[in-house]
């Protein structure tokens, strides 16, 4: 199934929650969705018979300078089709429902997105830092991140 067809199915099912479909070569096509029902959309994508996206390839946090984002790359092992979903979040309120119960691999990906971008996944059972030390401050992959002077008395930019 092409991404255009999947977009049509989603648009019919979820209406305003699905915002747009973008396909400009040489880019990969992607769908932009609203954040509020992203868990329901993902569950539908996984369980619907002819979509069957049972494999979360990667979940990436993003910083688009004026806003944040989460990008889901999905793959269906059965039907061999791919899908990219983008969700934009404002920097003042970076909340989004978790999908860790739909794909267990999202657990660590979401922790990483929290660690690096400060995106809060509502409902995640253990949203703590994963790559940085547990008491690290700030979100290193944000574009406006300033490296701290020191960490526990150790000079950072040495």
């Amino acid at each position: 199934m092409t991404q255009q067809e999947i977009y049509n199915i989603l648009k019919e099912k979820f209406g305003d929650e699905i915002i747009e479909f973008s396909h400009e070569l040489p880019s990969d096509p992607y769908i932009v969705a609203n954040r509020s029902k992203i868990d329901e959309i993902c569950l539908f994508l996984r369980d619907e018979e002819n979509l069957n996206f049972d494999y979360l390839v990667i979940l990436s946090g993003m910083d688009y300078i004026e806003k944040l984002g989460v990008v889901y790359h999905l793959y269906s092992i059965k039907h061999k089709h791919r899908l990219t979903i983008k969700v934009f979040l404002s920097k003042d309120d970076p909340h989004i429902p978790t999908v860790e119960k739909i794909w267990r691999s999202a657990d660590w990906h979401e922790r990483e997105a929290w660690d690096m971008y400060g995106i809060i996944f509502d409902g995640h059972h253990n949203l703590i830092r994963i790559l940085c030390p547990y008491d690290w401050e700030g979100f290193p992959l944000r574009k406006d991140y300033k490296t701290p002077e020191e960490y526990h008395g150790i000079k950072v930019p040495y």
């Binding site: 040489p26 880019s27 990969d28 992607y30 390839v57 990667i58 790359h73």
Partner: peptide
């Protein structure tokens, strides 16, 4: 690289 995004594995 033109403006855009891609995932290749």
């Amino acid at each position: 690289v033109p403006k855009g995004e891609i995932y290749r594995a």
